[in-house]
Design a protein around this nucleic acid. Structure first.
Lengths: 223, 223
DNA sequence: GAATCAATAAGGGAAACCCACTTTTCTTTT
DNA sequence: AAAAGAAAAGTGGGTTTCCCTTATTGATTC
C-alpha cells in the first residue's frame, strides 16, 4: 500500500477546517497532517512538518492566503499549494496562480471537485475550473505580455489614480472635481481603463475597482 | 437507546455542507436527514421530512437565510432553526433572532461550539455566544450604550440587503434584477436608506456602503 | 380602530452617466 | 523624424439615475 499524501489545512473557520479534515481523512489515499487558522500559525507549524500539499483559504484574517503562499514559496519552493475561496474565480484565480498557487477551488464547488483538485495538485499538475483554464489560456495566447504582469500594472499612473477613486465610490463628476479635470476627460479614462482591463461596461468597472481595493494592495502583481 | 435527532442543512457551499454532515453524523445522538443548497430547494425538500432542527447558512445566494427562516416559521412554527454565518455576530444575530431563529453560530466558532449549539436548540433552548447574549440582554433592559450603535442597525432587513449590494458596486438596475424588484422599488429603498442613515445624496450613499464592508470589518481592530 | 412601519411600486423632470468618435498637445521611444 | 503613448477635452445622443411625491397592502403597535 502506498503511503498516504499529507495535506496541511489553513482556514480561519474551525468548522470548515474540521469538515474538510473529515472529508480528507476518509479518503484511502489522503490524510490531514495538521491545520492552522492563520498565516503566522501556519508558518510556525510547518517548521516541523513536510506535507505534500498546502490547502489555503484565501480570506484569512490578518494576512491573506495569497500572501501566505508567497512566503511559503520562498521557504519551500517545492511544496504545492491549493487555494480555497468563497469568491468567484475571475476575481482572484489569476492572482493566486501568479503568487505561486497550483490551483484554485471555489467553496461553491462540490467535495468531489475539491478532492479531484487535491489529487491533481499532489501529482504535480495544476487545477483550475475548465472555464477559468480556458480564460487564462486565451489571455496568455492573445496577450503578448510575459504573463508575469497584472493587467492593472498596465494602467498609466493617471489611469490608476482614477481607477482607485472609482473603487472608493466616487462618481465621474466627483472625480473630475477632485482631480481638476473636465468630466469628459474622466470619461475618456473610463473607456481607456475598460479597454486595458478588458472590461465590458462601466458597471463591471465599478465592481472591479471596488474588489481591487485597500487590503489587497499587497497582493497585486509585482515584477 | 434514544432516537437520534435529525438535522437538515441549508448551505450553498457543498464542501461546507459535506463537512458539517460528516461532523454531525459522527455524533451518537445526531444525524443529518437531508440538505439543500438554496432556499427553494430547502422548502421543497422539507415537504416530505420532519427534521428536529434546521441549520441554515445566512448567506445563501438568491434568498438569504433569514428570509428562509421567516418562511419556514410560517409553515412549521415548531421547527427550530439555527443560523450559521461567516459574519460577526453583532451584524446579524439580532436580526436572525427577530426572524425566528433559535440561535446564531459563527463559522469562526469551533466545531464543539456548533455541536453544543445544535444540542441546545434541539432541546428547545436558545443559543448565542455569551458576549452576544449579554449585549442583547442589556439592550432589552433598555440600557443603551450610545457609542456602540451603528445607524446601520436601524435599517430593516430588506434595506440592509440593498445597502450591501450597493456596497458591492451594483447599480440600481442590477439590484432590481438580482432581487426581482422594480427599479422604482429599489429607488424607494435608496431614499429610505439615505433618510435613515442621514445621508444627503446617492454619491455619499455609495461611498458609505463600500466603506461599510462587513467582511473587512471583522478583520479590523476593534475596541 | 387608528397609527405607524415595512415592502412594493409608479410618475415625471432634471441631472448625470455611458459610449463611440474625434482632436490637440506633449513626451517618449524607435 | 516618425510612431506610439499619455493626458486632456469636445460632440452628440441614447440610457440611467436621482429625487420627490403619492399609493397600496399587510403587520405591528398603541
Amino acid at each position: 500500500m502506498k503511503k498516504k499524501k499529507a495535506v496541511f489545512i489553513v482556514d480561519d473557520h474551525p468548522i470548515m477546517r474540521d469538515g474538510i479534515s473529515q472529508l480528507i481523512d476518509q479518503q484511502p489515499d489522503l490524510e490531514v497532517c495538521g491545520s492552522a487558522s492563520s498565516a503566522p500559525e501556519a508558518l510556525n507549524a510547518l517548521n516541523g512538518l513536510a506535507p505534500d500539499l498546502l490547502l489555503v483559504d484565501i480570506s484569512l484574517s490578518g494576512m491573506n492566503g495569497i500572501d501566505l503562499i508567497k512566503i511559503v514559496k520562498k521557504r519551500s519552493p517545492r511544496l504545492p499549494a491549493l487555494i480555497l475561496s468563497m469568491h468567484s474565480e475571475d476575481l482572484y484565480a489569476e492572482r493566486a496562480i501568479r503568487a505561486g498557487a497550483k490551483g484554485y477551488v471555489m467553496k461553491h464547488a462540490s467535495s468531489d471537485t475539491l478532492l479531484a483538485a487535491i489529487r491533481r495538485v499532489v501529482e504535480g499538475r495544476m487545477y483550475l475550473s475548465p472555464e477559468m483554464t480556458e480564460k487564462l489560456l486565451e489571455k496568455a495566447a492573445g496577450g503578448n505580455l510575459p504573463g508575469n504582469e497584472s493587467p492593472v500594472d498596465r494602467l498609466s499612473d493617471r489611469e490608476l489614480e482614477i481607477f482607485k477613486l472609482i473603487g472608493q465610490g466616487l462618481r465621474p463628476q466627483r472625480i473630475a472635481e477632485e482631480l481638476l479635470l473636465s468630466i469628459k476627460t474622466v470619461e475618456t479614462y473610463y473607456s481607456r481603463i475598460k479597454q486595458k482591463l478588458n472590461i465590458k461596461d462601466a458597471d463591471e468597472l465599478l465592481r472591479m475597482a471596488i474588489a481591487w481595493h485597500p487590503d489587497l494592495e499587497e497582493t497585486k502583481g509585482r515584477s
